[in-house]
Structures are given as structure tokens and as C-alpha cells.
């Protein structure tokens, strides 16, 4: 039996306190896409080491040795762990392809891959995703964070009618 989600204002305040602790202790906010970029770089490096090391954008990750020895990588691992602990305690774990009642699972996965790729590209353009840019930059009242957040939601609302069947 799944337990209900917590009140959004309570969960939001908890998330905000976590972000505050991150700033005070680590000296930086929360992030997710940076860790994913590092993990993807490490995987690509296993296949084509020279190409990755010579890439202008990724090469720097190897300056200190292992690109995975980076705070955003362990933060990402922590996000997985925290998410699992909470989901498990609430009885919300289980293998599934989450989609709307009339959505085809195959198309759902294709759109997940495509959506992930767009999100990955967009986050690198913007120097962060909804965690590092919208949430963490927003809490420091950064102009670019508000621009990013506004653009993100405008584009998502615009595309939403076309992918409605995936969700509703």
C-alpha cells in the first residue's frame, strides 16, 4: 500500500533547508546534470579515450585524474540513495514504465530518450538544470536563473498539448 505524498509546502520547505545546508556547508547549491555529464564522460572515455580527452569541453575533467572524483557525482549518488530510501519507506518502489492510461510503452521510452537528450543539451547551454540553475541559482536571486526557469516552463507549456496522450 502506497502512502500519500507529503504536503507540497512541507516538502518544499524541507528541500529549501537542504539547499540552505548545501550552500552553508559545501559553499554551493544542489546539482544533478553536472554529475550525469561526468558519468557519461567517464563511460565515453572507456570506449574512446583519446577523443574524449582531446575534446575542448570534456578534456578538463581529466586534469585532476578521475572525472568521477567530483562532488556532483557523489551528490548524484546521494540523490539516488535518498530517493530510494524515501520511496521504499512509503511503499512506492516497483518496476514500471510510467505513462498515461492510453500511452504506448514503446513511444513513451522513445520520448524519454529524446526528452532526456534535449534536457542534457539544454542544461549544458544554461550551465545547469532545474536543480543547479532554477532552484540553486534562484535561491541566490540570479538573473539568469529566472530567465532559464521562465524559458523552461514556457517551452514545456507550449509543447504539452502535443504530448498530452503520453500523460493524461
Amino acid at each position: 500500500m502506497q502512502k500519500p505524498y507529503w504536503n507540497p509546502y512541507v516538502a518544499g520547505a524541507g528541500l529549501g533547508l537542504t539547499l540552505l545546508v548545501s550552500y552553508v556547508v559545501l559553499g554551493t547549491g544542489l546539482g544533478a546534470s553536472g554529475g550525469i555529464t561526468r558519468i557519461a564522460t567517464s563511460a565515453a572515455h572507456a570506449i574512446a579515450p583519446a577523443a574524449v580527452e582531446h575534446n575542448a569541453y570534456l578534456g578538463g575533467y581529466f586534469a585532476d585524474g578521475n572525472p568521477l572524483a567530483y562532488y556532483l557525482v557523489t551528490m548524484f549518488a546521494g540523490t539516488l540513495l535518498g530517493g530510494f530510501l524515501s520511496a521504499f519507506a512509503a511503499g512506492r518502489t516497483g518496476l514500471q514504465i510510467e505513462r498515461g492510461p492510453t500511452a504506448a510503452p514503446g513511444l513513451r521510452l522513445v520520448l524519454a530518450l529524446l526528452g532526456g537528450a534535449l534536457a542534457g543539451i539544454g542544461a549544458r547551454f544554461a550551465l545547469g538544470c532545474t536543480s543547479g540553475q532554477a532552484l540553486s541559482g534562484g535561491a541566490m536571486l540570479q538573473t539568469g536563473s529566472f530567465v532559464f526557469t521562465g524559458a523552461c516552463f514556457a517551452a514545456a507549456f507550449a509543447l504539452a498539448p502535443l504530448v498530452r496522450q503520453e500523460w493524461r
Partner: peptide
Amino acid sequence: VFGLGFVAG
């Protein structure tokens, strides 16, 4: 670009 990925993915 990120927003498109968010709602599609």
C-alpha cells in the same frame, strides 16, 4: 530546449 525535454521526457 530543456523545457521541451522536460515535458516530452
